[in-house]
Design a protein around this nucleic acid. Sequence first.
RNA 1: GCCGAUAUAGUUUAGUGGUAAAACAAACCCUUGGUAAGGGUUAGACUGUGGGUUCGAUUCCCACUGUCGGCUCCA
Length: 580
Amino acid sequence: MSDINLENLRHSCAHLLAAAVKQLWPGTHNAIGPAIDNGFYQDFDFGKVKISEQDFPKIEKKMRELLTAWERFTFKEVSLEEAEELFKENPYKVELAREFAKQGRKLMTNDPGNFLDLCKMGHVENPSKELKNFKLLSIAGAYWRGNEKNKMLTRIYGTAFPKKEELDKYLWQQEEAKKRDHRILGEKLDLFAFSELVGRGLPLFTPKGTLLRELLNSFSQELRLKKGFQKVWVPHIAKNDLYKMSGHWDKFGDELFLVKSQETKDQMVLKPMNCPHHQQIYASKPRSYRDLPIKYLETTTIYRDEKAGELIGLSRVRSATQDDSHSFCMPEQIETVYDELIDITKTFFDRLGMKYRARISFRDPKQPKKYLGDVALWEKAQAILLNIAKKNKLDYFIAEGEAAFYGPKIDFMVSDALGREWQLATPQLDFVQPKRFGLVYTDKEGKDQTPVMIHFALMGSIERFLSVYIEHTAGAFPLWLSPTQVRVLPLADRHHDYTKDVVSKLQKEGIRTEWDFENKTIGAKIRESTLQKVPYMVIIGDKEVEAEQCSVRTREGKDLGKKKLYEFIKDLKGQIEKFQ
RNA sequence: GCCGAUAUAGUUUAGUGGUAAAACAAACCCUUGGUAAGGGUUAGACUGUGGGUUCGAUUCCCACUGUCGGCUCCA
C-alpha cells in the first residue's frame, strides 16, 4: 500500500472534478464532495443543464488539463462574512458556512491554483503528481443533505487510487463482480425469471432454481429437525388484527403490507412475517414448563411492500421465502436454545464454505422510544447474548442501535468470495410479542409465566441468500447443490445407446444426470457444459464403449481419466455424503 | 416513492422521419468429430404499452409499465 492517504487523495479528486465541471458549465454550483468507501462523489446543482455519463470523457479531459497547474493546496482561514462574500453565488456553501460558524468551527478555504473552495482540511501534498489515477464511474440523483424534502442534486461518482495498477485492479474487480451478478447468472444458468405480468419483485423459479432452493432448504431444515424442531404450517393471509396485537401495525402501519388494509375490521392482509401465526399455534392449548422449549419450524413465503425503486433481482423482493423458526422457552433456557442455534449456523456456513463473524445488535440507549418492552429485560437479554458469543468463541462485535424493536439479536455477517459482507442468519430474542399475545406456560408452582420467544432463520430469505450465494460461487455450485451434477457427452451417433445406458444407471443412483445428443463437436459440448457449470462431464467414444468405461472431466478442465462406471458413482457418492 | 438513464428477434447488440440489420441460441441439412465454439440453409420483431405531432414514426413529444444506477457516508 502506498503511503498516500487514500481519503485525502479521493477528497482532493472531488475538488478536481468540481473545478472541471465549473469550468465546463459556468454557473454550476458544487455542494459536497467527500471520499467514500470505494472512491468519492461530488454533488452539483447544474441548474437547467442536463448532463449524462456521455459527458464523462469531456469532464475527465478537463480534469487532466486543470491538474497540470495544481501544485499544492493553499489554505486560509476566513471569517463568516468573508466566506459569505467569497461564495455568495453558491447557496450550498453559504448554508454550510453559516452552520459551521454557528457551531463555532473554523472556516477554511483552499485553493490548488485556480479553484477556490470552502473546505475542511485533508488533501494531498502534490496534486499534479498524485491525482493522476482517477476515473469517473456513474451519475445519480441525490437530495441535498440526504433529505427528500430538499432539492435533488446531481451526484457524480468516481474513484481514485495512488497507483495506476491499483485503479486498474479496482476496475477489473468491478467487471468481475458484474460477471458474477446473480441477475445475469440466474438467466444464463436458467435458475429464475421475472414476468412483467406477474409483477416486479416477484421472482419465478425454474426447475433448476427450485431444485437449488429445495436442496438448501432441506439442509437448513434438517439441521434443526435434528435438534428437536417440529414443522408447522400456516396460511399466507391473516386479519390485520393479528398485527395490531403483535405491535407490527403500530410500528410499520399499512406500509409494510402488500395488500393494503382498508382499515375495516376483519380486513385480510398478506403476512409480512410468520411470528404472530406461530404464536397462535403455541396459544392453541395450555402449555406446561415440562413442554418447553417448544420449537416450531416452517419454510414459508412472506410478502412485503418494498419500495419499487429498491427492488433488485433476488436480493430485494416482494415475495421472500424464509426458512423460519420460533422457539418458546423459559428464561433460564435461553442459553441452551441459543447455543443450539449458533451450532447450527456454524455447521451451515462452514459447509457452504463461507466465512462469518457475529454482530451483536443491542438497543440504542439514546433512543429508548424505538423499542418495546422494559429496559431491565433488555439489559438482561443483552448480557445473555454477549455471554453466549464469548462462550461459543464467536468472532464478534457489538452494534448499538441495530436491535429489532422487540429484542436484541446476534447477526451473522457472512463474507463472500469478493470480500463483501452480508447479514444473514439472525437468532433474535423477543420478550415483547409473547407478552402482547398473552402467551403463558404453567410453572412448577402452578402459576402462569410468559415464555421467551427466539426467532431464527438461517438463510433469512432463500431468495436473498441465493443472490449472495450465486455471486459467491459465480454459479459453480458444489456437487451436492448442482442442479445438474453430471452431463454425458457422446462423440458420435453410434455412442448414443451406451450413453443412454450410462445416464440411466447414474440416475438410478440418484445422480442428477443429463445427456447432450446435439449434433455438435465434442469441443462445443464441453464448452456448453462448462458454461453451465456442470461439475462433471462424461465423454463417451469408441474407446469407452469398447472398454465399458467412461472418461471423466471436471468443469475446471481437469481430466480424471477413464473409470469403470461403478467407480465413478462411488466417487460421486462419497463426495455428496460428506455433506449429509 | 423521488432523481436520472434506458426499452429493437429467445439473448446480446446495429440502424433509420418512408414498417428494420447482425451475432449467438433455435429448426433442418451436411459433417460423426477425442477435451472450451465444424460448415450451410431456414424460420423468427405489428421496434415495451397507450396517446400525441406528422402525409407518414421504430426514430420526435407525453404518459404508463419494466429494467439499470442512485437517494447513509457532511464544507
